[in-house]
Amino acid sequence: MATHGQRQLLRLTLQYCQHGGSSASMRSLISTNLKPFAVANPTLEIVVNNVNGKHPNVKGEYRTGWDKVVGVKNMEVNEIMNQIVRLNDSSGRKLTKFTKPVYPEQMSVQGRWTPGLDLGVEEFTIKEVNHVKH
């Protein structure tokens, strides 16, 4: 996701095991699909780490200082690519859970919208007003 014209994802780290079965799709992705993705995203730094004995994961590091780690154990190549694209399109901000209803500080002139308000059913007529000048 771009904010003020700058992509938010700075670094993408792919971690996999050279021998593990859960990393088979990750190894295939690195050898086939990673180069076209890197060419399409020249501002993104892509790091590939071989860590034997660990399950594969994808880590995105953002301008905000946050990072997101996604485990891709036993996923197919297209599923891993979907996770990479999702990290690339994300802003890196953590989600905020609202525990109370959010009400605006100032009410709208039009009134509060409710899901039951169906104005598509009502007919409106426009009356023409003639102004007479003397």
Results as ranks from 00 to 15, higher is better:
132 V>K: 07
69 V>S: 11
53 G>P: 01
59 K>F: 03
117 L>C: 01
44 L>G: 00
95 L>F: 05
72 V>M: 01
58 V>D: 02
120 G>I: 05
17 C>M: 07
120 G>L: 11
61 E>M: 11
37 F>R: 01
101 P>V: 11
68 K>M: 09
105 E>P: 03
91 S>A: 15
130 N>I: 13
63 R>S: 13
112 R>Q: 04
106 Q>V: 15
103 Y>Q: 11
132 V>Q: 06
64 T>E: 05
26 M>D: 01
108 S>R: 12
38 A>C: 05
120 G>N: 15
37 F>K: 00
129 V>K: 06
97 K>A: 15
61 E>T: 15
102 V>I: 12
8 Q>Y: 03
9 L>C: 03
112 R>A: 07
19 H>P: 01
2 A>Q: 12
89 D>G: 11
128 E>T: 15
17 C>G: 06
6 Q>M: 14
26 M>Y: 03
129 V>D: 03
31 S>K: 14
61 E>N: 09
35 K>F: 05
9 L>P: 00
45 E>Y: 01
54 K>C: 08
30 I>H: 04
121 V>Q: 07
10 L>M: 11
102 V>D: 01
3 T>A: 12
38 A>W: 00
21 G>S: 15
76 E>F: 14
77 V>F: 09
10 L>P: 01
117 L>Y: 03
60 G>T: 05
68 K>H: 14
30 I>T: 05
83 Q>N: 14
7 R>S: 09
65 G>N: 06
112 R>F: 07
19 H>L: 13
48 V>W: 01
126 I>Q: 10
14 L>S: 02
59 K>I: 15
99 T>N: 12
115 P>V: 14
64 T>A: 10
25 S>F: 01
73 K>G: 06
30 I>M: 07
24 A>I: 05
56 P>C: 03
64 T>Q: 10
10 L>Y: 02
69 V>N: 13
76 E>P: 02
41 N>Y: 02
52 N>D: 04
49 N>K: 15
105 E>Y: 10
